[in-house]
């Protein structure tokens, strides 16, 4: 386990690179996902109003 964390002395580089990668793609995913949800809400509202 310690070996995994220390990464042969390269820990700061590896973990920051992986961290950056995953944080960025998660942000990319959620910003788009939230936009999608917002559209769905608007559509539901319009549909409800029509009924």
């Amino acid at each position: 386990m310690n070996e995994l964390i220390s990464m042969g002395g390269y820990a700061p580089f590896i973990w920051s690179a992986y961290g950056f990668f995953f944080i960025t793609i998660v942000i990319l995913f959620f910003t788009n996902f939230l936009r999608l949800k917002k559209r769905e809400e608007v559509l539901n509202k319009i549909n409800n109003n029509r009924d």
């Binding site: 990464m7 042969g8 002395g9 390269y10 580089f13 590896i14 690179a17 992986y18 990668f21």
Partner: peptide, 13 residues
């Protein structure tokens, strides 16, 4: 050494 593990995310992106 271990630093080349960054390749696995760098190259695909």
């Amino acid at each position: 050494g271990d630093s080349m593990r960054i390749m696995y995310i760098h190259v695909p992106s």
